[in-house]
Amino acid sequence: MNLAEGVQVVSFGVLAVMMIGSALGVVLFSNVVHSAFLLAGVFASISGMYLLLNADFVAAAQLLIYVGAVNVLILFAIMLVNKRQDFSPFPTAWVRKALTAVVSLGLFALLSTMVLATPWSRSTAIPVGDPIVVIGQHFFSDFLLPFEVASVLLLMAMVGAIILARREYLPEQAAPSDLPQTVLTLPERPRELISAGSDNE
């Protein structure tokens, strides 16, 4: 995305303010739902930063994966937990807050020193070729094995989640048996529920 220098500076300033403000809201707000929504603002601001760097594929992936998947998953988890009572404050909570502030200030000082000490080069060269095509070529040539292994792991996780969701209960005590049990098995869904549902119809 080729923009004028003034537009780039203004866009960077707006995105930076939006990112820092949303990040502070995520940490400082007591309502966890508001923090989750502000986390989506942080991810969207990072996507805008990628657009300013001419990384359109990374920006789209940032929106699709982090805003559209990870953040929505966090919101679903928060709403499914449905914790009604407020958190009871600990008497020594100020110690944790002080340690968190010290660590955060130390990281901020370290990153600021690194940014100021790094000789940044201002290059306005436009990348040759379509970056999406280049990423696709690398995915199916150099990084084919890690790409396929990651897809297999995600498939295994999805199948395991479906199998665990189908079990309605776990036995408190294992049934006595003379044979040695070598495999952990879970009982299937009770048949009474299925027969009761069919009788009502």
Rank of each mutant, 00 (worst) to 15 (best):
Val133Leu: 13
Pro190Arg: 03
Thr118Arg: 06
Ile162Cys: 08
Asn31Leu: 02
Trp120Phe: 15
Leu105Ile: 15
Gln85Phe: 10
Trp94Glu: 10
Ser195Arg: 13
Asp178Ala: 10
Ala165Tyr: 10
Phe57Cys: 01
Ile74Lys: 02
Ala101His: 07
Ala77Leu: 11
Leu153Ser: 08
Ile20Gln: 13
Val115Ala: 15
Ala98Tyr: 07
Phe37Val: 14
Ala55Tyr: 07
Leu39Trp: 02
Asp178Lys: 08
Arg96Ala: 11
Ala174Glu: 14
Val17Asn: 08
Gly48Ser: 04
Val32Met: 09
Val102Asp: 01
Ser45Asn: 00
Val7Phe: 02
Ser11Lys: 04
Phe139Arg: 15
Ile126Glu: 12
Met156Ser: 13
Gln173Ala: 13
His34Leu: 12
Leu144Gln: 09
Ser45His: 02
Ala125Trp: 00
Ala40Lys: 01
Ile163Gly: 02
Gly48Arg: 03
Ala150Arg: 08
Tyr50Lys: 04
Gln85Ile: 12
Val134Gln: 15
Pro176Phe: 06
Leu110Ala: 15
Asp86Pro: 00
Phe37Leu: 15
Phe143Cys: 01
Leu53Tyr: 06
Gly13Thr: 07
Phe87Tyr: 10
Leu80Met: 13
Arg84Gln: 09
Ala165Glu: 06
Phe76Arg: 01
Ile132Arg: 14
Thr124Cys: 04
Val133Phe: 04
Met114Phe: 11
Asp86Tyr: 02
Ile46Pro: 00
Ala117Leu: 12
Ile132Val: 14
Glu148Tyr: 09
Pro119Glu: 11
Ile74Trp: 02
Leu99Cys: 11
Phe108Gln: 03
Ala23Val: 01
Thr113Ser: 11
Val9Pro: 00
Met79Trp: 06
Gly48His: 01
Met156Cys: 12
Leu53Gly: 05
Ser35Ile: 00
Asn82Leu: 10
Gln8Lys: 10
Ser11Cys: 12
Val10Cys: 06
Leu153His: 03
Val115Ser: 07
Arg191Tyr: 08
Phe147Tyr: 08
Phe76Lys: 02
Ala109Thr: 10
Gly6Ser: 12
Phe57Ser: 05
Leu75Cys: 03
Val133Met: 07
Met156Phe: 13
Val128Phe: 12
His138Leu: 14
Leu3Lys: 01
Thr92Phe: 15
Met156Thr: 08
Ser88Gln: 13
Asp178Glu: 12
Ser177Lys: 08
Val67Gly: 03
Ile162Arg: 08
Ile46Thr: 09
Ala93Ser: 14
Gln173Met: 07
Val42Cys: 03
Gly106Glu: 03
Gly106Tyr: 07
Val159Asp: 06
Ala59Thr: 00
Phe147Ser: 13
Phe57Ile: 06
Arg166Phe: 09
Pro180Asn: 02
Val17Lys: 10
Leu3His: 07
Met114Ser: 08
Leu73Lys: 01
Pro131Ile: 04
Gln137Tyr: 05
Ile135His: 11
Ala16Ser: 13
Ala157Gln: 09
Thr100Leu: 15
Met156Gly: 06
Val27Leu: 14
Val152Arg: 06
Val95Cys: 04
Asn71Asp: 06
Pro89Trp: 01
Val128Ser: 15
Leu155Ser: 11
Glu201His: 10
Pro119Ala: 11
Thr124Leu: 11
Met158Ser: 14
Leu145Phe: 13
Arg96Ile: 00
Trp120Thr: 10
Val33Asp: 11
Pro89Ile: 07
Ser121His: 10
Leu80Gly: 00
Ala23Thr: 06
Leu193Gly: 10
Ala157Phe: 08
Lys97Ile: 06
